[in-house]
């Protein structure tokens, strides 16, 4: 056990799985870098250094730098997965899915079902998501709802270094296509992470706080925000359960419904665009399945329906925050159903 950053946790998961299973390969734009250049090899190890050192250890056959050709290499990863390899393809920024969505949506996601259960596609696509870096409209989106919408894909949104390592190893060992989304603002976050390989099962939510008054469902980086809000609210006597679903597909609906049954109040925190996102999905689930348990309207803490703005002041305004979560929780905690006259 040692303190590891989110970046190191992911690097270690990849390294350990590549050591364990020779079928695991890595590909993507500059996952190593330096090929065809005049300087050193493994020059970058990914644009933010997440895959640094892997090509040095595993060689150019297993850590493949690709041309800037997302449609071809994402499709190639899907094809390789269907024929015996276990590729981990990196899309760099998830926004670049625009360049290769067909291969994910119409190809990899559909094989198993379309082919009558005859295909296995053990593919992992890693990508960075999220605002907070002034990376503007084409490099800041939180697109997990887009993938969650597509049957046949599993979608992972890890909330911490510990979670990232266990969920990534699970993803690599899973026989279905998995979209693994890393919040780019979290790469330097650190916590204790076991040195050994371990797995965290999909579809099993984690309760990071347990309380009696309000349930908060939060995704990815928002789990940390929700925990901070819960800690502040605790001091004022409002106790919260915080649910980190870990995977948006499959979604642990049971845990969400159980917790709402206990607290009767629900706030959902989702940094993706607000229409047809995970917050609307969870709200619909609870409205349909736990209507009788609700003591207050469901509140969503989400960004406005705009592209992600560049300027810091606007980006801060855009993002959900600890303060916004706190305010939403206070409003549902203070809500009382009016007695009928």
């Amino acid at each position: 056990m040692s303190k590891k950053s989110f970046r190191q946790a992911i690097n270690e998961a990849l390294r350990q799985e590549m050591r364990r299973d020779p079928r695991v390969i890595l590909m993507g734009e500059d996952v190593a870098g330096g090929r065809g250049g005049t300087g050193v090899k493994d020059a970058w190890g990914g644009v933010l250094g997440v895959t640094k050192g892997l090509q040095t250890e595993f060689g150019e056959d297993r850590v493949l730098d690709t041309p800037i050709s997302e449609a071809s290499y994402i499709g190639a990863a899907a094809g390789a997965a269907a024929t015996g390899l276990r590729p981990v393809a990196e899309l760099m920024f998830v926004d670049f899915v625009g360049c290769c969505l067909d291969q994910i949506m119409n190809q990899a996601a559909k094989f198993r079902y379309m082919f009558g259960g005859k295909a296995r596609t053990p593919l992992v696509i890693r990508a960075m998501y999220g605002a907070g870096f002034n990376a503007a409209a084409q490099h800041s989106q939180a697109l997990y709802p887009l993938f969650t919408h597509i049957p046949g894909l599993k979608v992972v949104v890890p909330s911490s270094p510990y979670e990232a390592k266990g969920l990534l190893i699970e993803a690599i060992r899973d026989d279905d296509p998995v979209i693994f989304l890393e919040n780019k603002v979290m790469y330097d976050d650190e916590e204790d992470v076991p040195d050994e390989p371990y797995t965290i099962p999909f579809g099993e939510a984690n309760l990071t706080r347990e309380g009696d008054d309000v349930t908060i469902v939060a995704f990815g980086r928002m789990v940390n925000f929700a925990n901070q809000a819960a800690d502040r609210l605790e001091k004022d006597g409002i106790s919260c359960t915080v649910i980190d679903p870990r995977t948006t597909s499959p979604l642990d609906t049971g845990t969400i419904l159980d917790c709402v049954a206990d607290t009767g109040r629900l706030v959902i925190v989702d940094e993706s665009s607000p229409r047809c996102n995970l917050a609307t999905d969870v709200a619909a689930l609870v409205a349909e399945e736990a209507f009788d348990a609700l003591k207050a309207p469901i509140r969503r803490v989400v960004p406005p329906h705009t592209p992600v703005p560049f300027s810091t002041v606007l980006e801060n305004l855009y993002m959900p925050s600890v303060e916004k979560i706190e305010a939403a929780v206070r409003s549902v905690a203070a809500y009382h159903v009016k007695e009928e006259a």
Partner: peptide
């Protein structure tokens, strides 16, 4: 201030924008 370095555009000058997508 909405776009930043990677999205500078001025359509009145026939400049259809820098681009964040290769």
């Amino acid at each position: 201030g909405k776009g930043g370095s990677m999205h500078i555009a001025d359509l009145s000058l026939g400049m259809l924008g820098a681009n964040g997508i290769v």
